[in-house]
């Protein structure tokens, strides 16, 4: 077995709400997660258990309180929990992609460019990048007539597919997926499941949150339970 691409050691995370009189909300404590290449780990647990917090902490979007988040990045190991911002940006550029539930982009940029842009600076010429992006959008059933339109006016499902295309097009070795199929119909769900399976076959390590049990069973190699954290008194 290969060394894991992504591993956490005693990861904990809490929020302190200064506007609420310094109220402290512990969310994660002592999380030890390990994901290998080609493996898809689905986080399981009830709403509010901290699944999204864990996923965002892995990406460096949330800052861990204690513990380590070790990522294999360009042949060396980087601790996301203690890395400086530029290192985290480099990890996101080369190694780890995150597909959020909601698309957040610059207004006015057409859907095609949003997807193609993710490829820029990675080798393909702008034209090649646009071609790849168009192919991927088409396979996700985003018709060509929508490619030139900024996705702000798209339906929820269309926006999510644009978001997925942007996450998948680069072929990052580590993929973090937050509810990838939440607002998709059955056909598109099948497309996404196939894309995830293809990515696994290529050796991508995937951590996902997925409430849809059918999809979960199709993609998950194992489940990682996340329970609401109770600090020892």
């Amino acid at each position: 077995m290969n060394a894991p691409l992504l591993r956490t050691e005693a990861l904990s995370k809490s929020f302190t709400l200064h506007l609420r009189g310094g109220l402290r909300l512990p969310v994660l404590g002592g999380v030890d997660l390990s994901v290998e290449a080609g493996e898809c780990v689905v986080l399981s647990g009830p709403s509010g258990a901290g699944k999204s917090t864990l996923l965002r902490s892995l990406y460096g979007n949330y800052r861990a309180d204690t513990g380590r988040i070790l990522v294999r990045h360009l042949g060396r190991t980087v601790d996301i929990a203690s890395a400086d911002p530029r290192t985290i940006l480099a990890v996101r550029h080369h190694t780890m992609a995150y597909v959020s539930q909601f698309l957040r982009v610059v207004p006015r940029v057409p859907a095609l460019d949003i997807v193609a842009e993710a490829l820029l600076g990675r080798g393909p010429s702008p034209e090649a990048a646009r071609e790849q992006a168009a192919a991927l959008l088409l396979s996700l059933n985003i018709p060509r007539r929508l490619h030139g339109i900024p996705p702000a006016t798209f339906s929820g499902g269309e926006q999510q597919r644009v978001n997925l295309a942007r996450g998948f097009i680069t072929g990052h070795p580590i993929l973090l997926l937050d509810e990838p199929t939440a607002s998709l119909d059955a056909d598109n769900r099948a497309v996404v499941v196939r894309m995830i399976q293809d990515a696994k076959a290529r050796g991508t390590a995937i951590v996902a949150i997925c409430h849809d049990l059918d999809v979960r069973d199709l993609i998950a190699d194992r489940l990682f339970p996340v329970a609401p954290y109770r600090e020892a008194a």
């Binding site: 302190t16 506007l19 965002r56 979007n61 985290i88």
Partner: peptide, 16 residues
Amino acid sequence: GLTDQVLDDPRHPYTQ
């Protein structure tokens, strides 16, 4: 810090 870090997980009372 990173823009998304600071804005999504603000720590300082003023940032919050």
